[in-house]
Design a protein around this nucleic acid. Structure first.
Lengths: 190, 190
DNA sequence: CTGGATTTTCAGTATATACTGAAAATCCAA
DNA sequence: TTGGATTTTCAGTATATACTGAAAATCCAG
């Protein structure tokens, strides 16, 4: 760790801390950060060397990162070691991050909500609770549908949309026309 | 807990589990879930009663939720107890959620990146690491700027935009014109 | 096959976090 | 003020999770 440039060290430590707020632990965060900054793939021993974790800790961290598709395995010619590297494009990284978390957290929640909403209520209280669950379901569904749409888009278009932000509406003065369109869509989806 | 309708119970337990993936712990998740579903504000004792946590655990959970602005305090006439309730509108909930997490996680990361990018590199390796940090910074900045824009919007417009998704572009055929606009914006912001 | 290089597994231990109960502090009606 | 109702604090304990080292499994060049 001391052998690293100061800036790199700061970055790696920061991601360690941040990781812990995300169900991803310190070790995993640091490994990822280091791989992200590295210009070449690193092997487990190099990670052990620089981060000073136990070999097995690094191994399981890498395993988790690979399972999240945040880190990929690569073999180097004339070397039996496994080398690891991240996606080069930052956009691919966020796409994956969002995708993984969606699968692990959002989708199960949606199923749970659907199951629970379908249930026959046994009391007034339950009925009104179900209404709230339904409301939440609608919102999450809307967000995930939107996300699916965005996920499909190539980076350049996505960036353009994001850059425009709220101006998307202001740019065009067809407020009424837009309203109409979006209402049609509401009817389709609900 | 057993006194709760089955659907409510499922929901509460699910949010307990999910909470733990979010830096929010099981207790806090369950408290929040219960308050969300309840049609009336609840006091700490009622929460202790239904969830079977210790009084102090509930207290600190509530404190955390209040600090996250996810739960609000309310007083009932002729009752000295503190009553707690969530926002009624689900959109307010997500707005707050995103806002809080942004303040706690994203903004500090941005500052860290800015500090570290500004540093004079001491090696080729460090220089190229800084380039990657810069790339990440650009992306996060873009997303947070977009978020600021969306945050300002009233719910109805936001919903319309989300509902339209990728169709925003397809609706209008002025691809060239749009491209132009967004390039101007790039120049402004970078 | 064999043996060295490498990764993976796993039981045990350490560390961090959640949770508790009891005691202290606060708050307000009388 | 005082005292009961209520909330908050905090030291100690339990629980969950991270981490380790050593041993087992895998892998492949010779």
């Amino acid at each position: 760790m001391n052998n690293l440039p100061a800036t790199v060290q700061t970055f790696v430590l920061h991601f360690g801390e941040m990781g812990s707020r995300w169900g991803i632990n310190r070790t995993v965060g640091q490994i990822y950060a280091l791989l992200y900054l590295s210009d070449k793939p690193l092997n487990a021993d190099e990670l052990v060397e620089t981060l000073r974790f136990s070999r097995s800790n690094v191994a399981s961290g890498l395993k988790e990162l690979v399972s999240m598709n945040l880190v990929m395995l690569k073999h180097m010619p004339a070397d039996r070691k496994d080398y690891y590297h991240t996606h080069d494009d930052v956009w691919d990284i966020v796409r994956n991050l969002v995708e993984v978390r969606r699968r692990r957290e959002v989708d199960p929640t949606l199923s749970m909500l659907e199951a629970v909403i379908a249930e026959q209520p046994h009391s007034e209280q339950e009925k009104q609770a179900q209404a709230k669950m339904n409301e939440m379901h609608g919102l999450i569904k809307m967000l995930t549908d939107w996300h699916s749409d965005m996920q499909k888009m190539e980076t350049e278009r996505l960036v353009n949309i994001l850059k425009m932000g709220a101006k998307i509406y202001d740019l065009f003065q067809f407020r009424g026309k837009l309203k109409l369109k979006s209402q049609q869509m509401t009817e389709e989806t609900s």
